[in-house]
């Protein structure tokens, strides 16, 4: 595939991933992951693996389904107030391209979150390991390094970033 098309396809995929989060299409978002895919947010950028270490998120599809079930449950009190996010994804840089079409891509994001009348801003970098499949890319790993990973959180994160 010519380089430009690859760049375009990967960017479109990353935008779509963010769009599903911002439009709260949780199931469709989970479906972007490979069956053994992992969503990982380390508490420190120096971490090399999600296993066996503290993690802000370290979720396989089963745990993603727990989180989805929670936020959709009518008794998820903290989900009740007016709440929404807006992601911007940029600086998309393909790190590795494998022969089978799998790619590793780095990007940066900025997310604004509104909850009640409060606005919070989160920023950081994504590392996506994407598997090429007939249905398009599937996420093997979505690593999210928050700029504020080590800082105190004023309230918490309820869903994926």
């Amino acid at each position: 595939m010519p380089k430009n098309d690859l760049q375009h396809d990967v960017e479109q995929f990353l935008y779509y991933q963010a769009e599903l989060l911002d439009t709260k299409q949780w199931q469709a978002w989970i479906d972007l992951f490979a069956d053994d895919g992992i969503y990982w947010m380390p508490p420190d950028a120096s971490y090399k693996t999600w296993e066996g270490q503290p993690a802000i998120f370290a979720e396989d599809k089963n745990l993603m389904n727990v989180r989805r079930g929670r936020v959709l449950h009518p008794d998820a009190w903290s989900q009740r107030p007016l709440w929404g996010t807006n992601h911007l994804v940029s600086n998309v840089s393909i790190q590795k391209e494998h022969k089978n079409g799998d790619v590793e891509v780095r990007s940066r994001f900025h997310m604004m979150e509104l909850r009640r009348d409060d606005v919070r801003h989160f920023a950081g970098s994504y590392l996506h390991k994407l598997k090429k499949s007939k249905a398009g890319y599937r996420i093997q790993l979505q690593r999210v390094d928050m700029t504020n990973a080590q800082a105190a959180y004023d309230y918490v994160l309820q869903v994926w970033v």
């Binding site: 947010m41 066996g52 745990l63 903290s78």
Partner: peptide, 25 residues
């Protein structure tokens, strides 16, 4: 260690599935 680590991550991380509702209360 990993068993209790799972509790640490799921219940006590800044993306807690539990304390989010406590903090709201």
């Amino acid at each position: 260690y990993r068993r209790s680590l799972a509790y640490y991550n799921l219940v006590n991380s800044p993306a807690t599935l539990i304390n989010a509702d406590d903090l709201e209360n």
